[in-house]
Design a protein around this nucleic acid. Structure first.
Length: 419
RNA sequence: GUGAGUGUAGUUCAAUGGUAGAGCCCUGGUUUGUGGUACCAGUCGUUGCGGGUUCGAACCCCGUCACUCACCCCA
């Protein structure tokens, strides 16, 4: 029996999965660069206060899900539970708000939340995300959604829904929340226990209770999109117009409220039916006051986070990612092995993926290994070949084998357009 | 934090109180220098752990640990 095991909620991603993982990352990175977003890398640890202020003291993430500890100097540090707060901190700390390269960012990274693990939810998980700083223009809300939509399409994910909503701003939201509270207070005894608490603590959350009675109440509850101020209402309309002209399909979901305190105006979620109860694989929205809250120059912003593990769950059974090698070298030991090693090094330097095994195994076993690695070619260097100054190349999908001079190996493979 | 379910070979799973088994994987052979397909053979276990009931427990009971799913909340 093994001595050590993984920590609960933290997983190992083995090569059969990691090829698809890398493909997701490559896709996200390529799409981001095409939208002119630039890579930002921030630390895994931040002062605890950053997340308390940024995400909100009362949120579940901060109140019970953070990995927090003291360093040797007695300062409270926290493993980041999400990406936005760190990027905003970096943006403020950099201070040069006019620098061209400091307004469009994308990031990858591990996040940590001490929740009970389940499908699509881990304690250490990975997010890809983008953040845009500097404009309140709804075009950028659209750009964020469009960027994620493009990634989703390029990953060949087709059965998903994009839900959008506006949750108003500091002007119109308090008024709406008052109306919502008034409405639910009239139906207090019809609410489930949980919702009675929500009414005081976080009234917006009343809208996504799954309890049957509460759902019925929800249908007649005041809807936020009917109570937006003119600024927010207009912002939302312009946002939707961009979506329509780009042909991005969406579902207007007046019940979409998001759990982090900093959001305002546009919120959105990408939802897949594949993921069980954790359907959201990307979510975000606008946050116009966070930069200021962190002591920066007042700067509107918009962004989203996407869960890499959730994306992997969606594509893993449906998307084939090429994961083979170019050339497997087969030899019969001794001098042929020396020659094989020499050639493998040359081929690798020239960009081909090459493998071989030093042990003296039969050709059958070596061919079988070549097949298991799904090698495109087998390069055979045996006693016969050496004595003729040649080697044999077998195309493993067609089965065709030919003899070539040692000196022409590189040009042979270069002309075959591998990869 | 709450609730439910599951722990058997490397892996996926059988075996409903009476000798722990199969597919896949792996190794070898049919084919001594040619892979994939086929056929043949072989290796693989303190049934998560501890206790109890019983002539006898993978199976029933209690405890414990681990994992999974769900609630809450979120990516």
């Amino acid at each position: 029996m093994m001595k050590y095991s993984r920590i609960l909620g933290m997983e190992d991603i083995y090569p059969d999965k990691s090829a698809k993982w890398d493909y997701i990352i490559e896709t996200a990175k390529n799409v981001s660069l095409r939208y002119n977003y630039r890579h930002i890398i921030t630390p895994l640890l931040e002062y605890t206060e950053l997340f308390k202020r940024g995400i909100g003291d009362e949120t579940d993430i901060v109140s019970k899900e953070m990995y927090t500890f003291e360093d040797r100097g007695g300062r409270s540090l926290t493993l980041r539970p999400e990406g936005t707060a760190s990027v905003v901190r970096a943006y403020c700390e950099n201070g040069d708000y006019n620098r061209l390269s400091s307004c469009k960012f994308f990031y990858f990274g591990q996040m940590f939340r001490a929740e009970k693990p389940q499908k699509g939810r881990l304690r250490q998980f990975n997010q890809f995300g983008i953040e845009f700083f500097g404009e309140d223009d709804p075009y950028y809300d659209f750009e964020a959604v469009s960027l994620m939509n493009t990634i989703t399409m390029e990953l060949k994910i087709s059965d998903y829904e994009l839900h959008i909503n506006s949750i108003g701003c500091s002007e119109c939201r308090p008024e709406y929340i008052k109306k919502l509270k008034d409405y639910y207070s009239e139906h207090l005894n019809e609410l489930c226990e949980e919702c009675k608490r929500r009414l005081e603590k976080n009234p917006l959350r009343l809208l996504d209770c799954k309890n049957e009675k509460c759902s019925i109440l929800k249908n007649n509850a005041p809807k936020i999109n009917e109570h937006l101020c003119s600024g927010c209402g207009n912002h939302h309309e312009v946002f939707k117009n961009y979506m329509k002209s780009a042909g991005i399909k969406y579902v207007e979901n007046p019940y979409l409220v998001r759990g982090l305190d900093y959001y305002c105006k546009t919120t959105f979620e990408f939802i897949s039916p594949q993921l069980g109860s954790q359907g959201t694989f990307a979510g975000g929205g606008r946050y116009n006051t966070l930069v200021e809250m962190f002591g920066g120059k007042p700067t509107p912003a918009v962004g989203f986070g996407a869960g890499l593990e959730r994306l992997l769950l969606i594509i893993e059974d449906r998307l084939e990612v090429k994961n083979n090698i170019d050339i497997y070298i087969i030899h019969s030991g001794e001098q042929t092995l020396q020659k094989a090693v020499q050639i493998s090094e040359e081929l690798r330097s020239s960009g081909f993926s090459v493998d071989l095994e030093p042990g003296r195994k039969g050709f059958k076993s070596q061919f079988s290994k070549a097949d298991k690695w799904e090698s495109s070619y087998a390069l055979i260097i045996g006693e016969e070949e050496i004595s003729q100054g040649k080697c044999s190349v077998k195309n493993l999908s067609s089965g065709i084998q030919e003899n070539i001079e040692f000196s022409s190996i590189l040009s042979y493979f270069r002309n075959r357009n591998l990869k």
